[in-house]
């Protein structure tokens, strides 16, 4: 398997982290996302016409979108079915729902981070406000889950929905978004960073 990867990308980190959780071997192809904008070059657009990372190549299959890649890896490499539970229809739908939610976190929290960290020209006030709106929803969902005795987004054990929502929630501080106000999110981040084979990405405070 070949992952087109950028070290500071939270979406690529979703895949690196899940690969580690599943203990899978793969090859990284480094992309000069910043400052080189290699993901917008002709040769990269031939791989992903959206000009986005990550992209996974496996046996001639080319998959873009972090969430799609998580689904693929879980289906192919997680015989336990823990990460992508399909037996229960409601839980299955929950996972899909939060996978989509994860992409909205990218659209807001990651945008704020690109602004503050890499100088992207975008509406920072709107990006931060959008992220706060999503974090309020995630925080109240997680505290409801805790109330029902569940520590994870879609049930009693972690799923790919947790992995998909994790990076840009945990990296929010990089974009000047304080997650101090979301105690259930803080506890969830803490639990996730204690999973076996967890490895960190710069910007995530594992001591929190």
């Amino acid at each position: 398997m070949k992952l087109y990867d950028y070290v500071l990308s939270g979406n690529c980190y979703k895949i690196r982290l899940f690969m580690a959780f599943l203990d899978l071997d793969y090859e990284k192809v480094g992309v000069d996302f910043y400052p080189g904008r290699e993901h917008k070059s002709d040769s990269f657009l031939a791989i992903n016409p959206l000009g986005q990372l990550p992209v996974l190549e496996d046996n001639g299959v080319v998959i873009r979108d972090a969430q799609a890649i998580l689904v693929y890896l879980a289906n192919r490499h997680d015989p336990s079915g823990q990460w992508w539970p399909q037996a229960d229809h409601a839980q299955f739908a929950q996972v899909v729902q939060w996978l989509a939610f994860a992409d909205s976190i990218t659209g807001t929290s990651s945008a704020a981070r690109l602004h503050d960290m890499l100088g992207y020209d975008l509406d920072i006030v709107a990006a931060r406000a959008g992220a706060h709106r999503l974090f309020r929803i995630l925080d109240s969902h997680l505290s409801q889950q805790e109330f029902e005795g569940h520590h994870w987004i879609a049930g009693p054990s972690p799923t790919i929905a947790d992995i998909a929502c994790f990076p840009y929630t945990a990296l929010a501080g990089d974009g000047g978004i304080d997650t101090f106000y979301y105690p259930a999110i803080q506890r969830w981040i803490h639990r996730l960073t204690r999973l076996p084979r967890y490895h960190n990405m710069p910007g995530i405070n594992v001591f929190a």
Partner: peptide
């Protein structure tokens, strides 16, 4: 160049936090 870049940026982002 890209792996030198990733190495360097990873280190610097650790410092940034």
């Amino acid at each position: 160049d890209t792996s030198l870049l990733h190495f360097q940026q990873n280190i610097f982002l650790q410092d940034r936090m």
